[in-house]
Simulated assay, not measured.
Amino acid sequence: MRINCPYCGARGLEEFTYRGDATVKRPESIEESARDAWVDYVYLRDNPAGLHKELWHHGAGCHSWLEVTRNTVTHEITAVELAAKGR
């Protein structure tokens, strides 16, 4: 699998580290009433089949954080953008 870094161009997977689901949103409240939301945020993840947004770090290159849209069944990458721009 190759990821097309916006700065470095197409690079091999070994230059990147998968850092998780890019669709998970951190709860805004730190109050006790938000405990269930925090448990969901920290421990529960979906395992989708098909297109999914993921965070990747280009650790062996420009050190950018990327939001990669990847088909989890075929591993085809349909989009790559800087994570800061996608949020």
Rank of each mutant, 00 (worst) to 15 (best):
R45I: 03
A34I: 06
C5K: 00
P27T: 04
G50C: 00
F16E: 00
S33A: 15
L13Y: 04
E28H: 13
V24C: 07
P6R: 08
I30W: 06
R26N: 03
A37I: 06
T23P: 00
G9I: 08
K25C: 02
S33P: 00
P27D: 13
A22S: 12
A22N: 05
E54K: 05
D21Q: 03
A37H: 08
Y41N: 07
R11Y: 02
R19A: 13
A10T: 09
R11L: 11
V42N: 07
R19Q: 13
R26C: 09
W38D: 09
E54V: 01
N4Y: 05
S33K: 15
E15Q: 13
D46P: 03
E32A: 14
A10D: 10
E28M: 12
G50A: 01
V24G: 05
D46V: 00
W56R: 01
L13I: 13
V42A: 07
H52Q: 08
Y41W: 11
H52I: 02
V39Q: 08
G50I: 00
D21A: 02
Y43H: 14
E28T: 10
D40S: 14
Y7C: 08
E31R: 15
V42Q: 08
V42T: 08
D46Q: 05
I30L: 11
G50D: 00
S33I: 12
G9E: 05
T17P: 01
L55S: 08
Y41F: 15
E28V: 08
E54A: 08
A37W: 04
A10P: 10
T23M: 07
S33D: 14
A49G: 04
K53P: 09
K25S: 12
A34Q: 02
R19V: 05
E14K: 12
N4F: 05
W38M: 11
R35Y: 15
E54G: 02
P6H: 11
V24D: 00
N47P: 03
G12T: 10
W56Y: 13
N4I: 12
N4G: 02
G9F: 07
Y43C: 11
A34V: 09
Y18E: 03
P27N: 13
N47W: 02
R45C: 03
A22R: 13
L44P: 01
Y7V: 15
D36Q: 14
K53E: 03
A22L: 05
I30G: 11
S33Y: 01
E54S: 04
W38A: 12
W38E: 04
S33H: 07
F16V: 02
P6F: 04
D21E: 11
A34F: 04
A10H: 06
D40I: 04
V24Y: 04
V24M: 15
R19D: 13
D36W: 09
P48W: 07
W56K: 01
A37T: 04
A49D: 01
Y43F: 11
R45D: 05
L13P: 00
P6W: 06
P27S: 11
G50P: 01
D40Y: 04
L44M: 07
Y41I: 07
Y7M: 10
S29W: 11
G12Q: 08
D46M: 02
E15H: 15
R45S: 12
G50R: 06
N4W: 00
E32M: 12
D21S: 03
L13R: 01
